[in-house]
Design a protein around this nucleic acid. Sequence first.
DNA 1: CGGATCTTTGAGCGGGGTCAAATTAGGTGG
DNA 2: CCACCTAATTTGACCCCGCTCAAAGATCCG
Lengths: 240, 240
Amino acid sequence: MDTSFAPLAPEATNPQSFRPEAPLELDIAELQRHMVVTRRKVRAGQYLYRNGQPFRALHFVHAGFLKTCELSEDGREQVTGFRMRGDLLGVESIGLSVHTCDAVALDDAEIWELPYPPVLDALRHIPELQVRLAAALAEEIRRDRVWMLTIGTLPAEQRVAAFLLDIAARLARLGFSARHFILRMGRADIASFLALKHETVTRALSHLERLQYISVLRREVKLLDVPKLRACVGTPCTIQ
Amino acid sequence: MDTSFAPLAPEATNPQSFRPEAPLELDIAELQRHMVVTRRKVRAGQYLYRNGQPFRALHFVHAGFLKTCELSEDGREQVTGFRMRGDLLGVESIGLSVHTCDAVALDDAEIWELPYPPVLDALRHIPELQVRLAAALAEEIRRDRVWMLTIGTLPAEQRVAAFLLDIAARLARLGFSARHFILRMGRADIASFLALKHETVTRALSHLERLQYISVLRREVKLLDVPKLRACVGTPCTIQ
DNA sequence: CGGATCTTTGAGCGGGGTCAAATTAGGTGG
DNA sequence: CCACCTAATTTGACCCCGCTCAAAGATCCG
């Protein structure tokens, strides 16, 4: 079996090198005709926004990788999602004056800020985009609920498999390799997102590797047997 | 201790007898000026809509109690929420042509149907309501994420306590008693929602009763010690 | 090189799941 | 109205998956 990572050149074959030509869902150019869209760099580890800070903009991820975290008053923390190029952050704060969660860059990121509430006025003049915003919010709800289903009905290893397939599919939509990628988050973040502990995630990954479904070395992942992974998470095999 | 339910007259003190005078978030009268709002009765156990059916309307709950269920292709099922008077159902399907989940009445319900997409056109003529819709969607996202936090970070008994406090708070907002109510759903539905098994929910309720935090008899619940329940779910006690 | 962080693995335990049975409520038709 | 049937709830006994605790690499950064 070839699960060695040696032949990988450090940068040339990096499966997630920057690719600005990937298509975007949102037509930013159209929006810019109606408001001031400012660009913002956020370093890995920095907060894009924090729980309690004033809500002044929607944040469109142009490049980079982030996580969103829900917090409780007594200090519990839950990763609620991972966001990448093309995702819109901050929509959960619409209707409020402050953010109710954290957004943290896991990678150096470039964010385009759509000032709020001006963005709502802009949408009023672009009825088509208004529907797009509602649709984007609805899709966020659907995504969250599919994860509720996953977490509520699948055991640890299958949650991890579902997580890998989700990341792979999203990277594929951006034009990256779905079979070979670098995780931008640590085991603890994956664990929190999947309602597990980091040791359990590690063990699940190790076991999936022993089954030859994937190969893992720290944050580098290769999907070796996607059909088996899909079967693992309950998607009936398309063949047969 | 008085945990007896004997003194309860069958209807007169029913903590959830119909109360149409409770205030609503959505101004239906305003909407009716722009579209045809049809009323619909749904019997307990019937589907309001099902996964895969065409998405033709948003559904406003005027009376009754419902659950929404997420389904997987391989037959797994997850209760994603319980909906009562004032809640808007179907928003998760905005942007799609079919529903992606089930909505089931747990009680005889009266639903006001806001035809879609006409409702979007109506919103275009009522800018204020357009923002309300986005805000309603955003609040749905926040609610889901708070449950992710609860399920991801609290053990079984505390999840059940959080569930009871949530139901109580929502009933209170509708003008019902927050201390004494009838659950409209079975143990299995609660369990699914909280990512537990029904026996675990039963045991948690029994234990909370033994602690004198609540009293339970089948679906009838009294909250005896709300501060202790709140402390249980991590809300720092407001009194010191 | 040295220290902090992240990942991996093992050993042991326990919370919650599984299986089973008893009890009770509710519905239905005689 | 009651007998019967079905479904919901409760409880016990047992077990296992995932958590806890601990320690040993591995990687990164100053």
